[in-house]
Amino acid sequence: MAAVPVSGYIRLPMNPPSQSRPYPSAVDGSTQGARAPTGPRGPTDGRAEGDVELVRRMQSGDEQALGAFYDRWFAVVGGVVARILRSDGDVEDVIEETFWQAWRQADRFVEGRGSVQTWLLTIARSRALDRLRAAQRRREESLDEPGAMDAATPAADDAPARSTNDPSLAVEHAERRHLVLAALADLPGEQRQALELGYFGGLSQTEIAEQTGQPLGTVKTRMRLAMQKLRERLSVLREDTP
């Protein structure tokens, strides 16, 4: 039995969080008690407060806070970086650079002007897009290695095997993911495409128009509607920072 690796990624079931029926929770490699769906976390949950407190401690140079912050956010940062880079090559580097920048620039986070989540994930996305564009430039400059990036494979698994040591955090990430996926699923395909090309592809609206063959005005409308709907659907997740 010991030879069998624990290999299956488990994700939360697909039952919408709004259903009242309890559902199984499963976290790869650990056993948790059954949880009823708690729904989206509101503005006053301890999570946002915990993030802000950690950033405060990072501002004062507490590297243990950096470790705790990393443990909380590694999985999400890793996910978005891997999705943007579409290749495993630089993922580890970019994750490290993201948290390093967060550490060095912790004092730039101003409580009340936005959430820690938005601040950190903006850094992660920017670092990943920088790396992606640099790789694309290298590819364009290198006539000897055409298609090198095309050969890169996306992250292998579709499931959020969020590797975090905190089971409640893993469940919360899964709930949040579930809600966001549901919101995306409600968007018309072309609006979802515009949004994903912008967010994960780092493309401007003009570039999206070129890539999809759609008029620029159409792309702008799709992007605007998609963001408005996303904002409405996810308003319950918004941390009400004072």
């Binding site: 590694f74 996910g79 992250a155 996926l181 996303l230």
Partner: peptide, 13 residues
């Protein structure tokens, strides 16, 4: 804030 939630839809790292 809404856009940052898109990060949660990314595949497993």
């Amino acid at each position: 804030d809404a856009a940052s939630n898109l990060a949660f839809t990314a595949p497993a790292v």
